[in-house]
Design a protein around this nucleic acid. Structure first.
Length: 210
DNA sequence: CGGAAGATCCACT
DNA sequence: GTGGATCTTCCGA
């Protein structure tokens, strides 16, 4: 676990998110998610993301301009969180991109522990230190490790309790693009290379595209 | 109003 | 590799 340095903890400006999701997604690799929880600071370095392009993307919750109570946060301005529940069990953390009403976002799929690993283990309901990469490898695990739930839906990602900071951006040569996970229902869009991972990073979820 | 499916994870074979 | 957990949302009748 590498220590976070001061410059790495400056928050990303909202303008960072005001561009297409397929540009934001790779640019988020290496950034730090910083969670404040009861005085403790939990930090994950982002190592895997997926872009969801909005109304024109059959895999997106905004497909065809669909808009419901659950997905309303997806239509907020870039820089907000969109959190929802799948399978009745797992929370998913998304970053809204572009300007409001676009319905585009980036799903945060995996992170590498930088600080607060103890608290994350507790949040996961684990006692023993974790086996390689599984602490926050996967979107459900990541949310559980950080204690993210529907209370975080609609919040800005530059706030006290949850923010994304500059971190150490992944070098472009180590970024791999691949099809998104779990979107077989989306037809041809299931093969679009909108999943971005840091190559060889053990925290990346399955299947590993390298 | 019913039913099906879901941007997942874990345990077990 | 397969199936079960668990429940909200959404669409069609």
């Amino acid at each position: 676990m590498t220590k976070a340095r001061a410059g790495e903890l400056s928050v990303l400006p909202r303008s960072f998110y005001r561009r297409p999701a397929d540009k934001v997604a790779p640019a988020l690799l290496g950034r730090y998610i910083v969670r404040r929880e009861a005085g403790a600071r939990l930090i994950l370095r982002i190592v895997e993301t997926e872009a969801y392009l909005g109304a024109g993307d059959p895999a997106s919750h905004a497909w065809g301009g669909r808009r419901t109570a659950r997905t309303s946060a997806l239509f907020r301005p870039g820089g907000c969180a969109y959190v929802y529940l799948v399978y009745g069990l797992h929370h998913m953390l998304n970053v809204v991109t572009e300007s409001e009403e676009e319905g585009s976002a980036v799903l945060i799929r995996a992170g590498e522990p930088v600080a607060g690993e103890r608290a994350m283990l507790r949040n996961r309901g684990l006692v023993e230190p974790i086996v390689g990469g599984a602490l926050a490898g996967g979107p459900g695990r990541l949310c559980q490790a950080l204690g993210i739930d529907l209370d975080d839906n609609r919040s800005w990602l530059d706030g006290e309790s949850l923010r994304i900071c500059r971190g150490r951006p992944s070098s472009p040569s180590r970024i791999v693009a691949a099809p998104r996970v779990g979107v077989d229902y989306a037809g041809e869009a299931a093969s679009w290379a909108l999943r971005f991972v840091e190559r060889e990073n053990p925290n990346v979820s399955r299947p590993r595209p390298w």
